[in-house]
Simulated assay, not measured.
Amino acid sequence: MTSLDHPRPLLLLAALASALICAALIVLLRPLLQRYALARPNARSSHVIPTPQGGGIAVIAATILVACGYVVAIGQAIPFVLFGATVFIALVGFVDDIRTIPVLPRFLLQAAAVAAIVFAAPSELRIVPVVPFGLERALLLVAGLWFVNLVNFMDGLDLMTVAELVPTTGAIVLFGWLGDVPLLATIIAATLGGAMLGFAPFNRPVAKVFLGDVGSLPIGLLLGWCLLQLAWHQHVAAALLLPLYYLADATLTLLRRIARREPFWAAHRTHFYQRATDNGFTISRVVAEVFALNVVLAALALASVRLNSALADIVLLVAGAIAVALVLYRFSQRRISLSLLASRESE
């Protein structure tokens, strides 16, 4: 699957089918999730009422079902390793949602899913050919494990993952239309983005259902694989630009917690987007700003792919880093309400 040589509207139909199937499955599953998978609020939560989690079951089921149907319809082979690893890590997340898995076994199981994808890839797919093959794949394993977990860490606010996934998968689909990523990555981006749109009405504030680890972990795996396809096809800057907000927020938060000698593996409320809500930003405002930022990052990634220049990549990465830094800075500052500002001006 290396080129898009069939009608492009099929991708839009696939995205629509994925959205409808996901929404239908959530309607069917929500009573069961309400009964058996209820996320109760605690000191680290952004929600204040018990909310069912596990909506990711519908997202991943719709994505895989429609993607499999698509590749079979066009006479291609189903990617069993990719989808098998996705189902496996979803099951790990499902168990962790119901009964907490200790940190080390959880990471080892996640690493097994990532390793299956990384080491099953054709050996000719390289990012930096001068680096020894084994070392590059080992580094990709570590990066993939971190990416899967950071997507999970960042899924702590209503619509946050939707605001991240929709612009990112939309950009990957556009790259596929332009012939810059393989067809399979384009199909998965289309179906995953469609499924997230089907999930969105149920996750808007105040959310009626959460993704849960059963959703955020496999979403991170599939999205990471799509970004890896960009990198393997020598669009490394674009692969970094698209998830740059998630990468920055999660990585800076992790480093800050390590520097403070906090148990960085434990749940917390110190991500920039969480601090934003504590600083007076509404959930809708935070999500809207993240969505707008991701649209900007998608535009920069598109420019990077189209210009195909090392100098342009450097400039665009710097521009993306500045845009992300501005949003992180805003989120870390306390927001003065209009009523408080008016009272101060009247004094």
Rank of each mutant, 00 (worst) to 15 (best):
T2S: 14
R8W: 15
P9I: 04
L11C: 03
L12V: 14
S18A: 10
C22E: 03
A24I: 11
L29E: 11
P31R: 08
L33I: 01
Q34E: 14
Q34G: 15
R35D: 03
L38K: 08
P41Q: 09
N42K: 06
R44N: 06
S45W: 06
H47F: 05
P52N: 07
P52H: 05
G54C: 01
G55Y: 04
A58G: 15
V59P: 04
V59K: 01
V59Q: 03
I60A: 03
A61T: 15
C68H: 08
C68E: 13
V71M: 04
A73E: 12
I74M: 13
A77G: 15
I78E: 11
F80C: 14
A85P: 10
V87Y: 07
I89A: 06
I89P: 12
A90P: 08
A90M: 13
V92T: 04
F94Q: 02
D97R: 00
D97F: 00
V103P: 12
R106D: 00
F107Q: 09
L108E: 00
L109G: 02
A111H: 02
A112C: 09
A113T: 01
A115Q: 10
A116K: 00
F119I: 09
P122A: 06
P122Q: 12
L125K: 14
R126G: 02
P132V: 01
G134W: 02
V148N: 06
V148W: 03
L150F: 10
F153V: 11
M154G: 13
M154A: 13
M154R: 11
G156R: 00
L157W: 04
M160N: 13
A171D: 13
I172T: 09
F175R: 06
A185L: 05
G193R: 07
M196K: 05
G198I: 07
F199S: 08
A200L: 02
F202V: 03
F202G: 05
R204H: 12
A207Y: 01
V214S: 03
G215L: 00
I219R: 01
L221R: 03
L222N: 08
W225N: 06
W225S: 02
W232F: 15
H235Q: 10
A237N: 07
L244M: 15
Y246Q: 07
L247S: 10
L252N: 02
L255T: 12
F264Q: 04
A267V: 08
F272Q: 04
T282Q: 04
F291S: 03
L293T: 12
A298G: 04
V305F: 06
V305K: 08
L311D: 14
D313S: 14
I314V: 15
I314A: 15
L317N: 08
G320A: 05
I322V: 15
V324E: 04
L328Q: 12
Y329E: 11
F331Q: 06
S337I: 09
A342R: 10
A342M: 07
